[in-house]
Design a binder for these strands. Structure first.
Lengths: 222, 222
DNA sequence: CCTCCCTTGACAGGTTGATGACAGCTAGCG
DNA sequence: CGCTAGCTGTCATCAACCTGTCAAGGGAGG
């Protein structure tokens, strides 16, 4: 909470505290910058008129440092241009004084809610990661270039690590019923995958006569 | 865009289209639910008064299904309780009619920005910078002249660097339901972008059979 | 030592993407 | 109201690369 007006600050701090949130109340731009350098906040409520500088500058500073903390701006001026500027400077929301506390609370809830989205839907084995949505594969964070078939095959294997897939299993899943391919095709792609994933902490193992499985290497204790 | 009033709808659709965004305009709650089941949107602008039900119900339905698409609610009533209800039902923002289009655009930008994960107001990859507000693109600070479609395509790619976008992903985002285009259109615009961004430290790469991605070239330490 | 199965290199065919030319359309302007 | 300029998207052609078969060389297990 960055706010230099006593009564507004007290009211807001009181309201959030009653809701069970911990609040730091800073009254200057400098103090706020210091606090932000030390602490990681879930939400910043920022007044624009500060004794030692504009809240806009503080906001710009925050964003230029790459901080993604949601910011809710408070101001006394209701001009449309002010709001547009605030939002384009990197604010997430905007409220004009005087405001209703219920609305402040609601907007704060909406911003906090946003935070915890984005479930991880990626498949991984060791340092090999496959994102089925973008169909991109990375090894230690570095992108690996795979072709469509190679990714399709890897996706099957990595979806159930340690499970053994017979060649006919793989053929059925990779090709429709009609356009079957020879069993060699699988062996071929296994080879190509191994080559492209060299250096990974996961390995495609052959079980003679049974099929293939992907396994994560135990720590090489080297 | 969910809105049953003709003139408001036309104005908003026109504004976003001019900015290079693809817009689907639904006039009923039922139609919107159908569209949402099929398509993945970057933003939903939702009017509350609909002929076949309340927008609140649609909003609740969206959230109950786990969809995290940002929702901006439009309404004619300025009551505080309405706003609080909207935000608590899962809306991300709220605007009272009549509103200024600049503000609608700014709020839409803020919501879209948040989804991309970056809190900063400009998108960049290497020395290529895109300012969504002015829809201007610069290369090493020098302005590059791009057309609407070119900017829209670049905006998608640069919003998530390294991510691979399939051609159908791009088609869905660039064109609404109505004016679909052939896959060649994408290839064409990729080519045009590459030509206009020649010499940049970022590059649009082709992953055959999978799609396109934008990557920043590692420093050539020359 | 022998057999079967896997591995790997090379190759032909087919699919996918790149590119130049062109027509429809929109918008701005006189 | 008509005209021009530029944006848009389709077609056709060509190049690049993926795909899967063949065949020849290993290696594990009996």
């Amino acid at each position: 909470m960055v706010e230099d007006t006593e009564d507004v600050g007290e009211a807001v701090v009181g309201a959030f505290t009653r809701l069970g949130h911990a609040v730091d109340w800073q009254k200057t731009r400098a103090g706020s910058a210091d606090a932000l350098a030390v602490q990681d906040y879930a939400l910043i409520v920022l007044d624009i008129n500060l004794p030692d500088g504009s809240g806009f500058d503080l906001l710009a500073e925050i964003r230029s440092k790459g901080l993604q903390t949601p910011v809710l701006v408070l101001t006394a001026r209701a001009l449309v241009d002010d709001r547009v500027d605030a939002l384009d400077t990197g604010a997430d929301d905007y409220l004009v004084k005087p405001f209703d506390f219920r609305e402040l609370e609601a907007r704060a809830r909406a911003l906090l809610r946003r935070r915890q989205g984005s479930a991880t839907t990626t498949l991984s084995a060791g340092n090999v990661v496959l994102d089925p949505r973008s169909r991109a594969v990375t090894l230690d964070g570095r992108p690996v270039e795979l072709t469509r078939r190679e990714i399709a095959l890897l996706e099957i294997l990595i979806g159930q690590p340690d499970r053994v897939f017979s060649k006919s299993d793989l053929l059925d899943q990779l090709y429709g019923f009609e356009n079957e391919a020879g069993p060699n095709a699988i062996e071929l792609y296994i080879g190509r995958l191994r080559k492209k994933l060299a250096g990974a902490s996961a390995e495609i193992r052959t079980l003679r006569g049974m099929g293939y499985q992907i396994v994560v290497n135990k720590a090489p204790r080297a």
